[in-house]
Design a protein around this nucleic acid. Structure first.
Lengths: 244, 244
DNA sequence: CAGTGGTCTAGACCACCGT
DNA sequence: CGGTGGTCTAGACCACTGC
């Protein structure tokens, strides 16, 4: 008891926050995998030796974060990233009338590359680290709508350079199932640029045509970067929608 | 009691929801204006004749919506839209290094116009309704960064056609103070387009240069449209940032 | 029908703020 | 120091789900 104050952050977390972290860890560890129903509130509270209200607060926080989904009469289920709703959580392109698109993907190349300083920094890696780069075109109803590079830490995602033979349209689901990397949120930077080179050719637009350029960093629960995605979108018959 | 089901929404709202609506109404009515401290939880609960926990839930919901800000030891204060933080809540343009901009505005024209079908629809008005249209350029450090049209319901905002003499840089604050219209959220649609005409001249770019085109509808607490803003942004040295 | 989460209550103690 | 919101507890009843 000699120290009067200035304790070095005594990690005095509220109980509900500790509970949240404990349950989050069980989800990350795979004990409660996506789609699993958690035990009911009363049993969990008993297990952890806390009041139901306290455990409830932790679950509500997790629900607000989108980690779990709670439904009266059913239970609390770990959010899975395989439903269409979640699949399109980060896909903000819509037709001008507001209807959604169902894009398909055509992979152009998969390679191991040395990342630029900017790209490795975005992924939180050392300068010059090796990356896996997937280049693909996404099309809707036969017409190409975007061209993109997908960049990943080769140390973690090297398998993706060759496997699986056919990449699924929804890579985030693959990251979650095969690498245990769950994309929780994403940061994007948008600009208007001119089309050129392979990108212009693949999208079937003239050199110099205006394209929407999107640079997206996908992050996990803890805020650690998982993927960097650079896209060029033809917004002639599309728009990028967002709401605050 | 003849109808067996399909009751027309029996408005059976939870108590905490009703409390939220009651308090929201007092804010909208100006009884609790932005910056005002609400009475403490215990007194409010007594006033409304509910348990503190129930009132607390209502206040927490309002805080989550950003309507009020709660601080331990101080109290619950109605959020005001005059701080820089809130001022830039809907301004998503940043420099590539992530630093923020402090744009200034130069008004080019103010007029009363007949709205296009698309524009009046976005504002929830009848086809052909009259609108006030403000055209301006926003500049940072002397360089123009965007050109925009601001469209408002003339029936409600006619004063803005001529007054005040000098429009403030931050219109949303003006809407709140003078028209009692508080912008709570906004929906945006983004596209890449080519510069042309007055827009290209004002931004100092060549005809055909790529610009980021933003169409934003600003909404109040109830989701009713307040303002339609159409902007053309030169993203040569800027980017539009967003995070999910 | 049993079991789940949703709502509501009532009260205790703690951490923070300003005086 | 008194007053605020933050945390935590304990228990009651309700509304929804699926069998």
């Amino acid at each position: 008891m000699s120290n009067s104050e200035h304790a070095p952050r005594p990690v005095a977390q509220p109980l509900h926050r500790q509970l949240r972290d404990l349950m989050m860890a069980r989800i990350d560890a795979g004990e409660w995998s996506p789609g699993t129903y958690l035990p009911p509130e009363t049993r969990l509270a008993e297990e952890y030796g806390v009041a139901v209200g306290t455990l409830r607060k932790a679950l509500l926080d997790m629900a607000a974060e989108g980690v779990v989904v709670r439904r009266q009469g059913k239970g609390t289920v770990v959010a899975s990233h395989d439903s269409d709703a979640v699949l399109f959580r980060f896909f903000n392109l819509r037709r001008p009338d507001g209807s959604t698109l169902r894009p398909e993907s055509r992979v152009l190349s998969r390679a191991r590359v040395r990342g630029s300083a900017e790209d490795t920094a975005a992924l939180g890696l050392a300068d010059g680290a090796e990356l896996v780069c997937i280049t693909r075109v996404r099309e809707a109803e036969g017409a190409p709508i975007l061209y993109e590079h997908i960049l990943l830490d080769a140390a973690r995602f090297s398998a993706l350079e060759t496997q699986p033979e056919i990449l699924p349209n929804t890579l985030y689901q693959l990251y979650q199932l095969d690498m245990g990397a769950t994309v929780h949120r994403a940061q994007e930077a948008l600009r208007a640029v001119q089309a050129k080179g392979e990108c212009a050719r693949e999208l079937g637009v003239a050199e110099g045509a205006p394209l929407l350029h999107i640079r997206r960093v996908a992050l996990d629960y803890g805020g650690a970067p998982i993927e960097l995605r650079v896209s060029w979108v033809n917004t002639q018959s599309l728009q990028y929608e967002t709401g605050v």
